[in-house]
């Protein structure tokens, strides 16, 4: 199978899975509406909080209000994309291992990683991507931003890289479930991850903050996930940081896939 036909097939499958999960969500529309409402309220609170902060100061860690608003929108869209595509699937993985229901997925003639991590789309968090995008556009308008093809292209590439880095970390955390069987710490780890990614890396200053900032930029590159695309679009187009983000993405995707495949070799399949 050629790369292109393989890619088309997986894209079609993703579309099919998206339709079926939407059908499933709509079968329980009350639950669906509550989930969407909670996300809208959460974004409202987040924006209100930053408005309060910027009512008292003109910059936070070197970011002015429209720039920071763009950062918030970027974080919200990226986090929404991850939650929509992967979080629920990865969170369910431990249960699949514990009950042996993973068997059914491993028997299918498609890539296991794709099927396990993409089989359900969480439509309840899909509006976050849209809302995040709207916030980004509003921030750009407020900033009087002029379209720049290079910045737009860099933003799109680094935004995709940020999503891939977050996915790579999540896949590694998920893989541990094969040995731990119960892996309730995944959600806690994800919360830690998204908490770190939520702020500009400039806030990590001072004798304690700086080493932390360096560690979470170069060793465990969580801080590049939102910072690099947001910076590229509304602040400095930092070539070395973009290169670092792309390199980290390739390495992390490769390492997380190897780790996941290694974990599957240890799968014992629960007794029937």
């Amino acid at each position: 199978m050629g790369i292109l036909s393989g890619f088309t097939r997986y894209l079609r499958l993703l579309g099919g899975l998206a339709v079926y999960t939407l059908n499933r969500e709509l079968a329980f529309r009350g639950n669906f509406l509550v989930k969407v409402s909670v996300e809208v309220i959460w974004l409202g609170i987040l924006i209100a909080f930053y408005r309060v902060v910027f009512a008292r100061t003109s910059t936070v860690a070197g970011w002015n209000e429209p720039q920071y608003l763009f950062f918030v929108g970027c974080y919200f869209a990226l986090n929404g994309l991850i939650e929509m595509l992967f979080l629920e699937n990865c969170n369910e993985f431990a249960e699949l291992v514990r009950t042996g229901d993973l068997d059914g997925l491993l028997l299918k003639p498609i890539d296991e990683q794709f099927l396990i991590t993409c089989r359900r789309i969480d439509w309840g968090t899909a509006p976050n991507v849209l809302m995040g995008s709207i916030v980004m556009v509003v921030a750009l308008v407020n900033a009087g931003w002029h379209p720049d093809p290079l910045r737009i292209a860099t933003f799109l590439v680094t935004f995709a890289c940020g999503t891939a880095i977050a996915y790579g970390f999540m896949l590694m955390l998920t893989s541990i479930s094969v040995w731990m069987v119960r892996n309730q710490s995944l959600m806690e780890m994800w919360w830690l991850f998204s908490s770190l990614a939520r702020y500009p890396k400039e806030i990590f200053s001072g004798p304690w903050g700086e080493p932390l900032g360096v560690f979470f930029t170069y060793c465990v590159p969580i801080l590049v996930v939102v910072n690099v695309p947001a910076n590229a679009m509304v602040r400095v187009l930092d070539g070395p940081m973009v290169a670092l983000t792309i390199t980290a993405t390739v390495l992390l995707l490769w390492a997380s896939r190897r780790f996941f495949q290694h974990a599957l070799r240890s799968y014992r399949s629960a007794s029937s």
Binding site: G100, K108, S272
Partner: peptide, 18 residues
């Protein structure tokens, strides 16, 4: 995997809600 099937009487592979 395209050429065989495993049916386990105590497990299901169908989507429960659909």
């Amino acid at each position: 995997r395209r050429q065989f099937a495993l049916v386990m009487g105590q497990k299901n592979q169908l989507w429960w809600d659909l």
